[in-house]
Design a protein around this nucleic acid. Structure first.
Lengths: 155, 155
DNA sequence: CCTAAATTCCCCACTTTCCCCCACTTAATG
DNA sequence: CATTAAGTGGGGGAAAGTGGGGAATTTAGG
């Protein structure tokens, strides 16, 4: 179960150091392999799973009928942007160019690594901050639909 | 299970270098043979399977009732455009003229090789980009059917 | 059937990218 | 303050991608 936020620097080679507290969890399960893909509904973030966790999902998605247009679109988004990355000896991953662009990650700047339960998310620092503020506002509004749904949760 | 996107150059001789990370999978199974055919429902892409994986697909397709009009059409497209290609010593395949035309692949330009689970797909860079943008939009639209489907996946 | 042209295939060589490893700096711990 | 762990930077070697020469095979035309 991942949680909490860490700011780390994306170095000049495009590598990101995974916070040490998450490394054990990522390593235990499927070697040092992690699955990284982009948020499938347009948010400017990256999703990261321990490999074996991801495999369960991939199995399901991979066996959807490919000639159905909708399934084909889902397969396309989820598979075409998926990469299997390895933690190096220092616990870093090299993020592909395309993914950095998607999430607005610039070499040399700070990025946020955020625990989200089953997965980790990677954001640029600015985006993470911006989205957090937006979420705060949306949830505070007592008239919004969100608000009604939330109130039924047993927290 | 294939995934991820690679851009490679279709060289002046019409050859495409298969990304190294896929080669082992393509070789292990059926020699160095791969099956290449065109997308059966009009997408401007090529389908590529390791040979033995293709045989499973061929089994399914070949046993469809041939006097059913739609099945017959699918069979026709898949089988008549099927080629058995070999990886050369450098892991490249020479794509037949007809297939290059179908997918709009021009010698000397960039093409996208996209993992899609059981198979690889080959696209021109432009087409791949265009399709990805379309899919993204479809998935972001909260009213689209695709969008509803993906919400049900446990990601 | 023979020759010429085009295509395909195999190999070698160059360039670029990536990845592994070592080392330094900064932060946390007792 | 000392010690260990975490985070950061960068060099060098290996591997991947790319280009092209030339032999072998196929195709077409006379």
């Amino acid at each position: 179960m991942y949680f909490g936020t860490n700011l780390v620097k994306l170095d000049t080679k495009g590598r990101a150091a995974i916070p040490a507290r998450h490394r054990e969890g990522l390593r235990n399960s499927g070697g040092s392999r992690v699955a990284v893909t982009i948020h499938p509904r347009g948010e400017k973030s990256l999703w990261m799973y321990p490999w074996d966790e991801w495999e369960k999902t991939a199995e399901v998605v991979g066996n959807l009928p490919a000639l159905n247009k909708h399934y084909s679109q889902i397969q396309h988004i989820l598979f075409s942007n998926l990469y299997e990355l390895d933690l190096d000896g220092q616990g870093r991953i090299l993020l592909p160019q395309k993914h950095r662009e998607h999430a607005g990650l610039v070499a040399g700047e700070q990025i946020a690594i955020i625990g989200k339960g089953r997965r980790l998310e990677i954001w640029s620092q600015q985006m993470a901050q911006q989205v957090e503020e937006e979420n705060m506002l949306a949830l505070q509004d007592p008239d919004s639909e969100v608000s009604a749904e939330i109130e039924n949760l047993n927290l």
